Simulated scan of single mutants.
Amino acid sequence: MAPSTQSGAAAFTTTHWSVVLAAQGPSPAAEEALEKLCRTYWRPIYGFVRRQGVQTEEAKDLTQGFFALLLERRDLETVRKEKGRLRSYLLTSLKHFLTNEHNRAMTIKRGEGQRLIPLEDLRDRERVGFEPAESLPADQIYERRWALSVVDQVLARLGEEYRAAGNIKLFDRLQKSLTDEPDRATPADTAHEFGMTESAVRQASYRLRQRYRQVLREEIAHTVMAAGDIDDELRHLVAVLRA
């Protein structure tokens, strides 16, 4: 699998969030970009809402409605105050809506029957611990769900790349080494399973880590307005995951 040849600067100019914010008015490109961001990062929003003591069904409506409203009205002044960072913008906007009873009621109404966010798999996720832990403050739940959503996007992209190259089984085995999972296979076990040498397995693992870092940087770039903010957001994501 050859690494992407697209430069960081070139990749940044076409990020989803920059497309949204650069649009002076409604445009198909901006709407498509914002909708994709909403569908990708709804989990931290839902987690924050649930931590406020909101019941599951109401939280679903609020989450759907919040993003539906976001698609209709983009408050660029708020974005500027949050330095053009999607993570901060969404949390600030959400807090505003949840503390305004009129907007809250309208948001619930907007959320009824909406299918913008893929909440249909929520029940299964709740059974495996998706619901936020009661011991964590809402802001921490939001930040952690945010970081995990970014990582999920990275792994999904890498999985598709390996699938296209016919190496999805190898990816499934090697990806555990990215997060140092305790049940990850040893290089010797992987080499035996795939008919490779241990040296080849280590090289494949190294290439995956390199590509992981590259794609992670690209995904972070999708959520900030200025290229200079990417490193700060990366450091923040790592700190959240290590906390």
Rank of each mutant, 00 (worst) to 15 (best):
S177K: 06
L158V: 01
G159F: 00
E134F: 00
G166Y: 05
P137W: 07
A133H: 06
A138I: 09
D152W: 11
L148I: 10
Q140T: 07
V154T: 10
D139H: 14
A165E: 14
Q140V: 12
V154L: 04
E143G: 00
R173H: 11
L178M: 11
D152G: 07
E134Y: 00
D152Q: 13
Q140D: 13
K169A: 09
D172I: 00
G129E: 11
A133S: 08
L148R: 10
Y142T: 08
R144K: 10
V151P: 00
Q175I: 03
A147F: 12
P137F: 10
E131R: 12
V150R: 02
E131S: 12
E134T: 01
L158Q: 01
N167E: 14
L155T: 03
L136F: 14
E143S: 02
L136H: 14
V151S: 02
D139F: 15
G129M: 07
D152K: 14
W146Y: 15
L155I: 11
K169P: 00
W146H: 14
V150H: 06
N167P: 05
A133D: 11
D172R: 02
F171P: 05
A164C: 06
A156N: 14
R157C: 06
E160C: 03
S177W: 06
L170D: 03
A164S: 10
L170H: 01
Y142A: 05
R145E: 08
A156F: 08
R157I: 08
P132M: 04
S177M: 11
R173L: 12
S135R: 15
R173W: 08
P132Y: 06
F130A: 00
V154K: 02
E160G: 02
S135L: 14
A164V: 08
F171Q: 06
D152P: 02
Q175H: 07
E161Q: 15
D139M: 11
F171K: 08
A133C: 05
A156W: 09
V128Q: 10
L155C: 03
V128E: 11
A164P: 01
I141Y: 01
Y162N: 03
E143D: 09
V151D: 00
D172V: 00
E131I: 08
Y162R: 06
L148G: 00
K176M: 15
S177E: 04
L178F: 07
F130K: 00
G129Q: 07
R163N: 08
R144H: 13
E134N: 01
R157E: 14
F130G: 02
I141W: 01
L174R: 06
R163V: 05
V151N: 00
P137G: 10
G159N: 03
A138L: 13
P132R: 04
W146F: 15
R173T: 14
L178I: 15
R173K: 13
A147K: 10
E131Q: 10
S149T: 02
E143F: 02
D152Y: 08
S149K: 00
Q140N: 12
A133V: 09
F130T: 01
R145W: 07
G159D: 02
V128P: 03
